[in-house]
Design a protein around this nucleic acid. Sequence first.
DNA 1: GCCGTTTTCGGCCCGACTGTTTTCAGTCG
Length: 584
Amino acid sequence: MPRISNKKIADIFYEIAEYLEMEDVAFKPRAYERAAQVIETMSEEAYDLYKKDGAKAIDAIPGVGKGMTEKIVELFKTGRLKYLQSLKKKFPVKIREITAIEGVGPKMVKTLYKKLKIKNLRDLERAARAKKIAKLPGFAQKTQQNILEGIEFLKKAKGRVPLGHYIELAYAIRDKLKKTPGISHVEVAGSVRRRRATIKDFDLIACSTQPKKLLQKFTSLSEVARVLERGKNRAFVRLKEKIDADLLVLPKDKYGSALLHFTGSRFHNIKLRTMAKERGWTLNEYGIFKGKKLLASKTEEEMYKTLGMDWIPPEIREDRGEIEAALKHKLPKLIPYGSVQGDLQIQTNWTDGANSIEEMVRAAKKLGHKYIAITDHTRTLAMTGGLDEKGLARQAKEIDKINKKNKDFRIIKSAEINILKDGKLDINENGLKKLEIISVAVHSGFSQNERVMTNRIIKAMQNPYVNILFHPTGRILGRRPEYAINIDEIIKAAKKFNVALELDCYPDRMDLKDTNVRKAVAAGVKIVIDTDAHHIDHLKYISLGEAQARRGWAKKSDVINTLPVNKVLAFFKKVRLDKLRKKR
DNA sequence: GCCGTTTTCGGCCCGACTGTTTTCAGTCG
């Protein structure tokens, strides 16, 4: 049975949604999109659910009913989907490839295919260059030009990008707009405000008495490469950094409704609007209305309160139960920003890091950290010059020396120990004993099958010395998928063997992902938030980790390194002693 | 195609902007 990934199922459902959109089918496209989005971001693989509990487990996925369950099961059984094949037969078009162009949707694809037999991006580019597009009914010069420019952009753009590489730019743009006359509010909304691990564009909202002036300033910022849209209260630009930015400007008393609208997520908004509708109200970016009467718009708190619920932190606005919790006044108290007191994964120039231990210490202190763990790679990671037992001992001496010089700061002796293919560690027991925190990670054999990989990691976690599993699923955003592991079993083992799971918040990793954090936390597994810094400039990413922990509904008490250093060390020491005692 | 403290049938979020139009369809968020 082919192991079809969630990503693959989601891609197929998105594709179906576009084909149905093309045929003007009502409502179904959104049903498929909604299901695709849920499957794409859920914590466990649908395939694992199916193997364990059969079709009923698939049917239990929110947004997936009888029809889609059948289709998913067919994919698992045959690796194919007859329904998609029949859609493709009718319109043999690479629809998602073409609709990736900004401003080109399913309806245009249909015309392009019917009139010019355009099936993919290459056909489209050729037709546009030959000036054939402008002659089509409903198309003209401008559309043809937009298509050509859109194709050029697509060639350079990378799709969704890691938040951490762009977040500073988003806020820099916000800050530039702050000084515009007439402005009362300006804020970054959208997936940046929700702190999704990857983003597609920037959504900004502002309130101003002079929207024209503000939009003028926005579209003429030095960061802007091209203006895509510009209306009375909205503009859409393409930045030189190969990412788009959207600005919505409304009057001051609409700040709350505008911010809510532009923060999303889409499905969070849809649920709120449906709730408003059930009461005979309407909800839009201008407020909540009963007929023409305005019920709320000034602040988000007021908006939520009018709907009978508590204010919901943006990080969890994904329609994953937060609305129901807010209605019952039972939202979790999410870990506050600034809670993490020390970073427990840092590489230095002893292996593949760029800076010395002392440089890392200085940078960490500047950030307000009270401690860091030095976690250079170990022996078998040869390309990084991994340390063996002797190397670790030499490094320990160096750490002792620096610790003596720093009274108000503590360096913890640790390592990122390699889990070998059979689940053994590449540092012997004597070496392990000398470390204060023992963290382990997989760095090879990524293609092992799920059973082998899962057992391998669980075997490592059983080792009584092991405290933390680093970047548990191994994903690199946009480059490498998670390795095949059964995250449920990993979480169960983490609980059983008292091993913390890392939320590695280097922007390209963000691993554990939000939905896995939520599962781990629900299972009572402890989390640590680390940057995996290889350079002093990486330490600042810790707030991205806090953001993602919030997205996983984590509380401060779920995260070990919110504790002061003595408690952190005591915690791990106790775990080790308990495990050694049990072993005997 | 999904879903249900009104429901297993009858609903399904809402508005701005563009381009090609003479009142709107398509796209986007």
